[in-house]
Simulated scan of single mutants.
Amino acid sequence: MSQTLTHQEALIHVMVMMSAVDSAMSDEELERIGKLSRILPVFDDFDADDLVPVAQRCATLLSAPEGLDILLELVREALPPRLFETAYALAVDIAAVDLNIRTEELRLLALLRDRLGLDKLVCAAIERGAQARMRH
């Protein structure tokens, strides 16, 4: 791949991909991406001013031919294995923001799970945790 990402950029790319996969990036999803990138320990040394440029680069890559496949590979290459589950959890959190998981979002979660080699039971637990957190 001609581009490399930091692990924080890769995590942001995962969240942006999930937000964009249904062709409608909602304000709630964008707010959640911003909030997660400010509060989670994995982003402690990430410069918040870089969030918009990183998200824009992701959107540009995503719109290119084979963009989704390229982005998934960039993410896999950038993340240490200890952050694979974190990436999945962030994707689930973005998908769950509107409390309505769409087919495209489920497909991206499956692609991410497969690309990162995650256990289906671990993913089910992550998904269940997100459901519990998003309840009113």
Results as ranks from 00 to 15, higher is better:
Glu9Met: 01
Ala10His: 02
Ala10Phe: 03
Ala10Met: 03
Ala10Ile: 00
Leu11Asp: 01
Leu11Trp: 00
Ile12Arg: 00
His13Asn: 09
His13Gln: 09
Val14Ile: 03
Met15Ala: 01
Val16Trp: 01
Met17Gly: 06
Met17Ala: 14
Met18His: 15
Ser19Phe: 07
Val21Cys: 09
Asp22Ser: 08
Ser23Ala: 11
Ser23Glu: 04
Ser23Lys: 15
Met25Pro: 02
Met25Glu: 07
Ser26Tyr: 05
Asp27Pro: 05
Asp27Tyr: 12
Glu28Gln: 11
Glu28Thr: 07
Glu29Phe: 09
Leu30Ala: 10
Leu30Cys: 04
Glu31His: 12
Glu31Thr: 10
Glu31Tyr: 14
Glu31Trp: 14
Arg32Gly: 03
Arg32Val: 07
Arg32Leu: 09
Arg32Ala: 10
Gly34Phe: 05
Lys35Met: 06
Lys35Ile: 11
Lys35Glu: 07
Lys35Thr: 06
Lys35Gln: 07
Lys35Asn: 08
Ser37Trp: 00
Ile39Asn: 04
Leu40His: 04
Pro41Gly: 10
Val42Trp: 03
Asp44Ile: 09
Asp45Lys: 15
Asp45Ile: 12
Phe46Pro: 07
Phe46Tyr: 06
Asp47Ala: 13
Asp47Cys: 09
Ala48Ser: 15
Ala48Gln: 14
Ala48Pro: 10
Ala48Tyr: 14
Ala48Asp: 08
Asp49His: 14
Asp49Cys: 02
Asp49Asn: 11
Pro53Tyr: 11
Val54Lys: 00
Val54Met: 00
Ala55Leu: 00
Gln56Met: 14
Arg57Asn: 13
Arg57Gly: 08
Cys58Phe: 00
Cys58Leu: 00
Ala59Tyr: 00
Ala59Ile: 00
Ala59Met: 02
Leu61Ser: 11
Leu61Arg: 09
Leu61Thr: 13
Leu61Met: 11
Leu62Ile: 07
Leu62Ala: 13
Ser63Ala: 11
Ser63Glu: 03
Ser63Tyr: 01
Ala64Cys: 06
Pro65Leu: 06
Pro65Met: 07
Pro65Cys: 03
Glu66Ala: 15
Glu66Lys: 14
Glu66Leu: 15
Gly67Cys: 05
Gly67Phe: 03
Gly67Glu: 01
Gly67Tyr: 02
Gly67Ser: 09
Leu68Trp: 08
Leu68Glu: 09
Leu68Cys: 09
Asp69Tyr: 13
Ile70Asp: 07
Ile70Pro: 00
Ile70Phe: 13
Leu71His: 08
Leu71Pro: 02
Leu72Thr: 06
Glu73His: 14
Leu74Asp: 06
Val75Met: 10
Arg76Phe: 09
Arg76Tyr: 14
Glu77Phe: 15
Glu77Ala: 12
Glu77Thr: 11
Ala78Asp: 05
Ala78Arg: 08
Ala78Leu: 11
Leu79Thr: 06
Pro81Cys: 15
Arg82Asn: 12
